[in-house]
Design a protein around this nucleic acid. Sequence first.
DNA 1: ACCTGAACACCGTTCAAGT
DNA 2: ACCTGAACACCGTTCAAGT
Lengths: 246, 246
Amino acid sequence: MTEQPRIPLSRRRVLRAAVALADRDGLGSLTMRRLAQEVGVEAMSLYHHVANKEAVFDGIVEVILGEIMAAVEHAEAPPPERDWQAALRAQILAARDVFLRHRWAPQVLESRSTTSPLVIAYYDHVVAVLRAGGFSYDLAHRALHVLGSRALGFTQELFTPDSAQPGEAGAGNGAADAGGHTAADAGAAELMEQMADQFPNLAGMLAEAVHNDPDGTLGFCDDQFEFEFALDLILEGLERRRTAGH
Amino acid sequence: MTEQPRIPLSRRRVLRAAVALADRDGLGSLTMRRLAQEVGVEAMSLYHHVANKEAVFDGIVEVILGEIMAAVEHAEAPPPERDWQAALRAQILAARDVFLRHRWAPQVLESRSTTSPLVIAYYDHVVAVLRAGGFSYDLAHRALHVLGSRALGFTQELFTPDSAQPGEAGAGNGAADAGGHTAADAGAAELMEQMADQFPNLAGMLAEAVHNDPDGTLGFCDDQFEFEFALDLILEGLERRRTAGH
DNA sequence: ACCTGAACACCGTTCAAGT
DNA sequence: ACCTGAACACCGTTCAAGT
């Protein structure tokens, strides 16, 4: 409609449209029919450029990892021989920026059963940094396990002590909307008390955090701050083991 | 067929069947129709006991978290006031055992958009242990972020430097089976060389690990060992920050 | 109260047919 | 070579009807 279908379809164009669609409407909206519609074609035409839907997921993982590789290359960091911690830290935070632009990407990445060669290449690069920093292969191997997905710049949070995050979350046919219209008004304090009964320790944690931050400019959980705190703790622990000669 | 449908259906029985089905055939086989078949009923009958499929997923998360709570309560651990590291370590490893029995559980847990009250209760207990160990609320909060899902006993591995894991992995209509019949014989060494070219650092890591373990009784990645190494590194890092008075 | 059959609105995917 | 329409085999779910 809005543009004439001049350029012929290609695998690349399909995958870029898939990424854009997931960015805009969430992963649940990424169906073959919707994707076809997005590139102005019938669903079955997609199969000339991708084998099936699994291949689409593999493809968008490739796209995201391409962005990560580019971001890592352009990151400003000291040579790892001089300061491996600063070098790895800069690389990981650069990778993290990509995931902040594509919030659905961790979920897709974790859903892949066979590891993408680009993921392997990324971890190969991490090992290169560690080796340059004086790690044995053994400790480098262990470091990969300790870092886990954090090496790529994200952690899947099971539990955010923040207020409930709104918005769509998955495939979601809108449900679970009943009886929530008192949450913002008088119900807030009541809910707080209820939580204090059931989860006294978390409630205490929450109460103190609110107290410490009266201006409320920062959220209770500043994810970026927490991510860096955790990352530094791990890097420091690894350095300690390295100098201990593991 | 094999047993008469004596006892009437119940939410509890539906959820236990769902867990058993996921254990046996994988998460991809968990459809409303298959589940109904499993309890000897038509698919539509399930809707008298669960609201919809999302409710089934929420339900089996409840079941697993119930198992975890029970396992944690029966774990042998010193009182956290005396040794918080040993106490938390024992709790986390007990929780981990449950996930080792239900390999699909992490994926379901991470797919939930609203955090289960049982997950909150679990993390409340973690904070209790930390508080007893002398943590400020602030540092306890940070500890939750550092631990992430590791507090529950699992880490989602993006990349296992092991040999490719076989078997089913998801919804999987069997695909990607072409041209793999030389993997076990002469192809292995060839593949090794190919990897050495593309991923020199990982290849070096792999080569040394094989050399260090000539008997081959242990895999390259002993996950339990790695999990405990990472956990101890983190616990140690947290203790260091605690005594530093954060 | 609990279960059912038929039907609806979606999926991913195959196949024979168009240009 | 690339795209299409109709069809198939699955989903989750609704609804009116059975006992």
